[in-house]
């Protein structure tokens, strides 16, 4: 089976975001990166599917030429090869343009099955996976917490509001992975050394311009300082009054 796992490089979760001087992007100074959390789950599921059904896993990303560290890590966890579609504008690219470029490449790679994270933990759009399936005219299941791939078809369980939905689908398909699907493995040291010998290629990104443009970024307003209304049982009345009449939460 020809499997593709799409990943995105995102700032480390604990990064303190700062808006850059132009007001439309994040200040990248000192920012460190990681593979988006849900994409790690996508890679793990791709590798598990390969281990069960055979085939090959290609890790695919759109990113700067420097994003090889995350790609190597994914290859070290069981990917067979990697391909970076080089785009120095990767942070600003919109979902549609991203999905179109990925779809074209996935078609060219002749994939049977694509795994993506349910969303990338930078913008939280949750759009590229379903768009990709639409552009490819493939089946798509999102927020997947269980998946079984058989001969030319598969079943998946999707987490939805207040319950689960059970799906059957035919291949080719795009599976967008939710956090309970698996627990990603650690990159072992042998895997890291083996990854050095596996192909990690770069190709220029062929993409349309973004249709959606970020015109202004703002950080959330600073949280107002708390107020202590008193101490001990004597403060209960004042607290109740504040909750009722100022915060209006009671």
């Amino acid at each position: 089976m020809n499997i593709v796992a799409c990943i995105k490089r995102v700032p480390l979760t604990e990064t303190q975001a700062k808006v850059s001087a132009d007001g439309t992007s994040l200040d990248a100074t000192g920012v460190e990166y990681m593979t988006s959390f849900y994409d790690e789950i996508a890679v793990e599921e791709a590798v598990r599917t390969k281990e069960k059904s055979g085939g090959e896993v290609t890790i695919l990303t759109i990113g700067s030429a420097g994003s090889s560290k995350e790609m190597r890590e994914c290859i070290a966890k069981g990917g067979d090869k990697g391909l970076i579609l080089v785009d120095e504008d990767w942070m600003a690219r919109d979902c549609r343009s991203t999905a179109k470029a990925l779809a074209a490449k996935i078609r060219e790679l002749g994939a049977d099955l694509v795994f993506t994270g349910r969303l990338a933990t930078d913008r939280d759009n949750a759009a590229v996976g379903p768009m990709l399936a639409t552009l490819l005219d493939w089946a798509c299941v999102t927020d997947v917490i269980e998946v079984e791939i058989g001969d030319g078809k598969g079943t998946a369980v999707r987490e939805s509001e207040g319950g689960v939905e059970n799906y059957e689908f035919t291949l080719p398909a795009v599976i967008c992975c939710q956090k309970d699907l698996n627990e990603p493995r650690y990159a072992g040291l042998k895997g890291i050394m083996a990854a050095k010998k596996k192909p990690l290629d770069e190709a220029p990104l062929e993409a349309e311009a973004s249709q959606a443009e970020v015109v202004r970024l703002e950080l959330p307003p600073a949280r107002p300082e708390g107020r202590i209304v008193g101490e001990g049982p004597d403060a209960v009345d004042a607290l109740m009054d504040a909750l009722r009449n100022e915060a209006k939460v009671l």
Binding site: K69, R72, A76, Y186, L189, K196
Partner: peptide, 14 residues
């Protein structure tokens, strides 16, 4: 080197 950093990070994470 990149592989040295990756090895360190893998162990650090674990």
């Amino acid at each position: 080197g990149e592989d040295e950093r990756m090895v360190r990070d893998a162990v650090r994470t674990w």
